[in-house]
Design a protein around this nucleic acid. Structure first.
Lengths: 180, 180
DNA sequence: CACTATTAGTATCGAGTCGAAACTATTGCA
DNA sequence: TGCAATAGTTTCGACTCGATACTAATAGTG
């Protein structure tokens, strides 16, 4: 059906234009995407494996890209004390600044009215969930939308990992997130 | 605004998943995108420049990719007689077959009902037009939606190039297309 | 009609993406 | 304790991609 191809093309073209604009400075589109993910992911979701799952690439590739991001001073590596296999990445100050520059796609997005934005988000989200379900991929939704998220007296809390959360963590991406 | 980032992420993730699935056989995602474009573009729109404009990459890159597509037997090169600088690419039989395999994104798309599809297409199209307008990029719409397209007694006709069109050309992509 | 500017396309370079496959180190489990 | 699973890394080869410098053909101007 020609109709289908069309929407697919639109999505790919939009992403491509977003990418093309993403060559700003010494970052390429993939590096920018990683930076963006690390910026929005919580402390449980910042390992090479998580980045790989989110971007849909292999861990080998991710290792390479994270290495070049580290060499350019955008991220710091940190090994876990609990599980010595695990590595986690933090954005440096430079990294946070770079993650903050807006893309042309965002400007165009803010031109849409609120209800259109809502509709668009909903439709895209449904598609994404559908595809992820078929590929047993994870959703990487926001912590606060998860079935394990609780609001307690002393603040937010994760019932899956059994840990107290800081005030901003519910708004971050979690690799364990499962929609309620 | 977190809201904006979200939609942008959705679009990029969908495109990325589409890409990741696009490694089938001996084609990579970019090669697959080029093949798809060449398959849907009319005879006036199949040069390296047009591919570059459509994909938002430089001509140098496009030349390289077309070269590898040709070596693998997916496309044929043809120099124009009128303007000897111009080259045009045709899909081979193998190329047409490869362009026909559907992506997971398409299946997920057909799960949406017709009105949702229409709504989604419209919203994405508006965004695309908006972004293209800001970057003086071309729309690459279908011939039949163009202001130069005419329906004559002897069949479809292009008033811009002053040529008669075959029956299927109005349904193809044209680099000269300008929405009516 | 000659001269210059523009346009179409190509080659080369360096950095980096990407999957595949082979590998190390750690942890989990029976 | 010993083997399987997991997290991450390395290496390889093919390729993308922008930048830059290039050739050839056409267009436009005086």
């Amino acid at each position: 059906m020609t109709t289908d191809t069309h929407i697919r093309d639109l999505i790919n073209r939009l992403a491509r234009l977003d990418s093309a604009a993403g060559w700003e400075g010494d970052l390429n589109p993939t590096q920018r995407a990683m930076l963006g993910y690390l910026d929005r992911a919580n402390r449980f979701s910042r390992s090479p494996s998580h980045v790989s799952d989110y971007l849909g690439i292999t861990r080998g590739t991710t290792t390479q890209s994270l290495k070049s991001l580290r060499q350019k001073g955008y991220v710091n590596e940190r090994r876990s004390d609990i599980d010595k296999r695990v590595v986690s990445y933090d954005l440096t100050q430079t990294g946070r600044e770079a993650a903050a520059i807006p893309a042309p796609l965002e400007e165009s997005l803010s031109a849409l009215n609120a209800s259109d934005q809502q509709a668009l988000r909903q439709l895209l989200q449904n598609m994404l969930q559908d595809i992820l379900a078929k590929n047993d991929g994870r959703e990487f939704g926001l912590c606060k939308t998860c079935r394990h998220h609780r609001e307690r007296d002393r603040g937010p809390y994760c019932a899956l990992l059994d840990v107290a959360l800081t005030r901003d963590e519910p708004h971050q991406i979690c690799h364990e997130q499962v929609s309620a």
